[in-house]
Design a protein around this nucleic acid. Sequence first.
DNA 1: CAAGAAAGTAACCAGTTAGTGCGTTAAGTG
DNA 2: CACTTAACGCACTAACTGGTTACTTTCTTG
Lengths: 226, 226
Amino acid sequence: MSTPSETEAAAGEPAASPKTRIRIRDAEATRTRILEAAKREFARNGLGGARVDVIAEKAKANKRMIYHYFESKEGLFQTVLENAYLDIRAAEQRLNLDNLDPRTALERLVRFTWDYYLKNPEFITLVNSENLHRAKHLKKSELVAATSRKLVSMVGGIVERGVAQGVFRPGVDPVQLNITIAAIGFYYFTNRFTGTIIYERDLMAKEALEERLSFNIETIIRLVSA
Amino acid sequence: MSTPSETEAAAGEPAASPKTRIRIRDAEATRTRILEAAKREFARNGLGGARVDVIAEKAKANKRMIYHYFESKEGLFQTVLENAYLDIRAAEQRLNLDNLDPRTALERLVRFTWDYYLKNPEFITLVNSENLHRAKHLKKSELVAATSRKLVSMVGGIVERGVAQGVFRPGVDPVQLNITIAAIGFYYFTNRFTGTIIYERDLMAKEALEERLSFNIETIIRLVSA
DNA sequence: CAAGAAAGTAACCAGTTAGTGCGTTAAGTG
DNA sequence: CACTTAACGCACTAACTGGTTACTTTCTTG
């Protein structure tokens, strides 16, 4: 929020400030604050329900700046959404599953996906909002499609290795597997409110979360086992 | 939609038209038209994005009637949502799974759930919208909770019989199983737009749908098999 | 059949909300 | 230190939108 850094070297005419210098006018920082505030607001209320004024206020930026950097409310949403996808895809790549044995790799992916949804609930709501709008914003992003391709091929690689080692059965479509891994976590979280009523159980209680994760791992392992 | 039912005996005094009598003023019919139009509009745009004027227009009713029958936009949404839940729960009960052998019963439930989502896409969007609003409307409906209880116990019964017959493994939580059956279908449909981009595949193509359904059945059967 | 009740309508309103016009101020540059 | 460029802010608006007021029409019933 506030800027704790020093203003020291600011005096010297031609820049020369080596460290984090206080910048009253910092385009990058403002842009980032807007993006961060927008993510929260869009996640909480959806694209339609989000209020531009609220985003501006929470970002401690002027509303005019939003239109300056992102053109429109939808332009802002598009950027937020694309960043969200790139973030999870990047995190998945960092898992380095190719070095693990197939079973462990798969379990790790299931666990990661679960944890990511749990710790980044905005992701789920953003995706839901985008689907309500028939993916019109995501369609414009070639980058997301490209990085997703990597994920699918990574899972494909795991399955292949598993089959080669005789621990996985052949014929499992990596795309279907991927969808299933996402589904069993995504559904649980996105419907946690209605789910708590339908199943008369606090789905977000610590034990409930642990139980579900175990169940999900079991589901996936049984699905691919030879 | 239209009222095919009998109005005949209603004659008594004047009127006396025996068949589908044109009724300029029909409270029940108007209410139903509003409900139907609202379901579509809420499903297409969510609670926040739906427009009361549009609902009135599509229902061929005056906007004032909406407030007359449902008090508010949210009141209308609540009724639409509750009806949607009651409808799927009733359809599930009609499956009569208790008379089938466990494996067939489970497969039939997976297939039904899938088909229901496919043929009633509004259900999914309504549920999503409700979760965006933290289930504040569904909380008020004791009826939905009660009927859902029946579903869970029905699945519980199937699992028990399966275990008794030695075809299912013991220890499978009916609630988790239920969630998983819903999840693997729900996720696929709710994210069909972003999914088509992410997985670079038309998820709604005929073959894709068939393939997914088979995969889902396989997933569930493997999950419970002894 | 009068009369009240219920169904239906049109015009309207007050509060919002995405988006802008235009002026101000800070930072980089020769 | 002029001068240009980019960041920033205020105040405004045109269009919407949920909800309502006041009124008309049709049905039912004592």
